[in-house]
Design a protein around this nucleic acid. Structure first.
Lengths: 109, 109
DNA sequence: CAACTATATGACTATTTACTCATATAGTAA
DNA sequence: TTACTATATGAGTAAATAGTCATATAGTTG
């Protein structure tokens, strides 16, 4: 792969990663793990203002991470490409590994 | 898991994800995939100013994604928890899936 | 020692992000 | 029709982020 091509890939990867690089948006991903939900229920789960949640959701749709459909008054959001969920397993692995290192350090004192 | 515990996890996950949610930092991770490198070589690879690269590297160390050691004049950086690299496979999967959908759309026109 | 190299950081600016409040819009129901 | 519900969005603010340039610091080499 050439330098320019690589940079294109890095940019697109960053777009997607940025779309989930926020506690509230991670909470959304976690909540949508089991299927689509409306904004009001998402807002309850993440415990934030409806307008704020709506903006975060729009951002995630723009990045291609979520998709939405209208059903009556409600708008239902769901994860567009569920393989992204594996990413969170990896991150959890990182946290677990680091926690274990910390534990070893603690034990050593 | 309780609400409060969940939010702690989301916050820590976000810290780590944010640390790689930037094209330059993704380039760094890609470059360090095969082992530790000094700042000057990283800067060449990512094609950015030394001072800027240094700041990005510090940020990644602070988030626990990289670690560094000094060797003579140079400071060598490496990936602290290589399991984070799997995350990029997942993201690439997402991009590939989305590209295939686009292709199907194109073909249908 | 002086000159040099590699890295980090202070100070600054520009941009982006997150959030809030108020309001607009679209659909529902009486 | 009016009242209501769910969502999106304009306008504004505060804070965080990314970048630059100049300079400080630490180690190396002659």
């Amino acid at each position: 792969m050439k330098t320019q091509e690589r940079q294109l890939v890095y940019a697109r990867q960053a777009e997607i990663i940025k779309a989930v690089a926020h506690p509230l948006r991670i909470a959304v991903m976690d909540f949508l793990r089991n299927g689509e939900q409306c904004v009001c229920d998402i807002a309850k789960y993440v415990d934030s203002e409806q307008s704020n949640v709506s903006r975060h959701l729009s951002l995630m749709v723009a990045a291609g991470v979520l998709e939405s459909r209208k059903q009556g008054l409600k708008v239902l959001y769901k994860i567009k490409t569920p393989c992204i969920l594996k990413c969170f397993h990896c991150i959890t692995d990182v946290i677990r590994t680091q926690a274990q290192e910390n534990q070893q350090l603690l034990d050593a004192i």
